[in-house]
């Protein structure tokens, strides 16, 4: 009996390992969330709360917001790569394999489209729409990639989509939804996934 049970375990493990990107660490979610919150706090207190306090032109404001967003993005990706690399090393796997490329492709395609789309809004001066479009496309990217990784990513994606739609409806509170979506949700899901997948093993 034990042999058959072991056999089934091997079959299951091989099917999962060969189709799913499981090196994602909850910690990268937590740190991405904290970074996003810092970025949002900077944007809010430095620029958006009281636009008269600084004498930037609309264009300068846009550049500062863009730089802020890109720094947050860069740091988050950096953390994600670092923790995935560490987790892959720990479980004796290669980080760059066929599944990783497939995962990056399915995550990246909607993200790049959404990034360019949001950039167009930003450059046209529709700063209010940026929170909504970044959340929406990020959510769609997560739902799209979730079949190649942990199932929780699917629900995180749906949460982001709902927040994106809400922030389109409540247009002038975008920064709140953005902070919830990229900050709070990342921390929440990061902690949940860290406890579920990283601590027990």
């Amino acid at each position: 009996m034990d042999k058959q049970l072991e056999d089934l375990k091997v079959i299951r493990e091989m099917m999962e390992k060969s189709t799913k990107f499981l090196s994602l660490s909850g910690l990268s979610g937590v740190l991405a969330g904290l970074t996003a919150m810092c970025g949002a706090a900077f944007a809010y207190f430095y620029l958006l709360r009281n636009p008269e306090a600084t004498d930037y032109t609309k264009f300068q404001e846009m550049i500062i917001l863009l730089a802020d967003a890109l720094i947050v993005l860069g740091i988050s990706i950096g953390f994600a790569i670092y923790f995935s690399w560490k987790k892959a090393k720990k479980s004796n796997q290669k980080l760059l394999n066929k599944v990783t490329y497939k995962t990056l492709y399915h995550l990246g395609l909607p993200l790049i489209a959404g990034g360019i789309f949001s950039l167009v809004f930003l450059l046209r001066g529709d700063i209010e729409m940026v929170a909504s479009s970044t959340l929406l496309f990020y959510g769609l990217a997560l739902v799209n990639v979730s079949k190649f990784t942990y199932p929780e990513v699917h629900y995180l994606g749906i949460t982001e989509i709902i927040l994106g739609l809400l922030s389109a409806i409540f247009l002038y509170h975008g920064i709140i939804f953005w902070t919830i979506g990229f900050g709070f949700c990342h921390i929440l899901y990061g902690v949940l996934m860290y406890i579920k997948y990283d601590v027990t093993k």
Binding site: D7, V10, I11, R12, M14, M15, K17, S18, T19, N92, Q93, K94, N97, K98
Partner: peptide, 23 residues
């Protein structure tokens, strides 16, 4: 068993990828 499991859920898999997966 491992080889068959991997090939059941992947269209194709090359030798080195199989080697890494099955160790």
């Amino acid at each position: 068993l491992g080889i068959m499991s991997v090939l059941m859920v992947n269209d194709s898999m090359d030798f080195n990828a199989l080697k890494d997966l099955l160790e």
